[in-house]
Design a protein around this nucleic acid. Structure first.
Lengths: 339, 339
DNA sequence: CTGAAAGCGCTAACAC
DNA sequence: GTGTTAGCGCTTTCAG
């Protein structure tokens, strides 16, 4: 490949080499490279340094730099499941972008929900002098904070731990539920069913609360017989079909897109058309599904990217956060053609 | 900035503190902590060190360690799209697990396919003294290698660059196509249609080659009129429905799961049942879709996790690799109920 | 068996 | 303006 031996982790040319080549001291090199504010450097010397840098293809050693400065530019992200759910990756994406934007780099660890792996991951991050840790889960829920997390700054992403005092950022389920319902209401529906999940969770209670709030605001009485429970995937939606039809509703708000997908199948099987015979609204905006159903599904997006980004902003102190109550990120409605 | 937060972020206790507390020298502490092979340490001293470590909650500074050793334990992963496609995240996951297993930590960067971001990402990784870089794309394709990548060891994941000399690991599209077709063949089908993608790609040619190979092996003549072209998502599958039915095939191998999903809709609309009236086979094993269609879709899995894992193994020299020809990872067939 | 000392590559006072 | 010189926290000869 080349004469020097690159790739083996360390590159040969150091700041001292540059200094020598430019005929200046390392301090000068350091100053021009970092464009140090209070440093007076002659134009001529500065130019020589820049030339030498280019000449030697010098690349600063970040590790040495942070060592001497005492402050690293790492942010850790520990996730219980990086890819179990398709969109969880967006949390990484958002965190990575925001970290990057602020000159930080992301250290990622996946723990698969394994306690030991989790501790090891946190330990490793601490050893790497991370500025702080983002602890994230792949679906919104309450967690108990790993004790080791207390040893550094941390913010919980897509999860929370009441009483822990840790900052946390989660999706605004209630607003999401409200928006979803409002979308249906706006289309003129008044008898709106809701297929909620069987799993107790912030999503379960939040979306229901939102649904009720929207109905309320529209002056429609909440009708218990219009809310159904189903497992949160295709099968759940499918088996709910008859109940939905029997309910006399003209529209359904589904706990998530997968349920909506199952419902699509069920409805089609019964010969009903969407949205003519039944309007349907999903939740999550799962990209493989929502936009490609027939007809494309109207839904509410889970702001994973924003969750990750807001998490690092809070960690970096760029955005205020409360240890007492989770910061809510809006779930924007996405209108397509199922309404 | 955060000088008021002493215990956070950077920890105060250093190896020197431990040495002092244990009444030994730092060299001794270093030796016992790293369990240095050639170092004879008195049991008594060793014990005192361990006590001191526990007492002070000492945590080694990885950055200082790698600085002095000259060799870091970082591996970089640059991806053009971490989450654009749901399962791309599995590449990260696999890479992370394997890196971790070998005592390395993953530095992740997402470039969104942006050239400048890419260069910046690689530069940053180089500055962090990474052992090497995994360069990955979210779908299998040929790329032109970013010049900067030449400055370190690199392996291409889910992509390749012929003539670059870089090691590369990609899915075995042809074997996947063969397996898919064989699955259909094994169920007794002889007239098997193939909906291929309109996009020229290794997937397009590889899967077709596999399809032909399987037919060939079964003694069935390749019938050009049985292969159709469609855009690689739901819509493509849906609009292909009439062609498929008209072709007289009893089974269809779809370029991917999304196409299969569209076809499901089309078939259902025509009143045809799967698999009784038409057997269908997908490709990708996209988890939100495949397992949850009605009936669950038989498909072939894209080994993203393995791709990531194999990539770091090759980078670390744990697995042989050729710079000339990509290493192929098998795409295992997943049989469900659509056949 | 254990300690002193010389760096690793860089930054940050403080001289000159 | 620019160079000298201490470290940062740790590893690693090399004496004793």
């Amino acid at each position: 490949m080349s004469t020097l031996e690159p790739g083996r982790g360390t590159h040969v040319v150091t700041m001292r080499d540059v200094a020598k080549a430019a005929g200046v001291s390392v301090a000068t090199v350091s100053n021009v490279i970092n464009d140090k504010p209070g440093a007076r450097i002659g134009d001529e010397a500065r130019q020589r340094v820049h030339n030498a840098v280019a000449e030697l293809a010098y690349r600063p050693n970040m590790l040495a730099k942070t060592l001497s400065q005492g402050t690293s530019r790492f942010i850790g992200l520990v996730a219980d499941a990086i890819a179990t759910t398709p969109f969880a990756g967006q949390i990484i994406h958002g965190a990575q972008d925001e970290a990057w934007k602020n000159g930080y780099v992301l250290l990622v660890a996946n723990t698969d929900g394994n306690q030991a792996a989790e501790d090891e991951a946190i330990a490793m991050m601490l050893e790497h002098q991370v500025q702080g840790i983002l602890y994230s889960t792949w679906y919104h829920r309450e967690i108990t904070v790993p004790p080791m997390l207390q040893q550094t700054d941390a913010v919980l992403v897509d999860c929370f731990a009441s009483g822990s005092g840790l900052a946390s950022v989660v999706p605004d389920e209630e607003q999401g539920g409200r928006s979803a319902t409002e979308g249906l209401l706006a289309a003129g529906h008044r008898r709106i069913a809701f297929i909620n999940t069987t799993t107790p969770s912030p999503a379960q209670s939040g979306r229901l609360a939102g649904y009720r709030a929207a109905l309320d605001a529209a002056g429609i009485d909440f009708d218990e017989s219009l809310v159904f429970l189903a497992t949160p995937e295709q099968e759940g939606g499918f088996v709910s079909t008859t109940d939905i039809i029997a309910s006399g509703a003209s529209a359904v708000f589904c706990h998530n897109d997968r349920v909506a997908m199952g419902l699509y199948d069920g409805l089609r099987e019964k010969g009903l058309r969407i949205p003519e015979d039944m309007a349907v609204m999903g939740f999550d905006n799962q990209d493989v599904i929502a936009a490609h159903l027939r007809p494309p599904l109207s839904t509410v997006a889970l702001p994973h990217y924003e969750l990750g980004a807001a998490g690092v902003r809070m960690l970096l102190g760029l955005e205020s956060s409360s240890g007492a109550v989770p910061t809510l990120i809006a779930c924007p409605p996405i209108l397509r053609h199922s309404i």
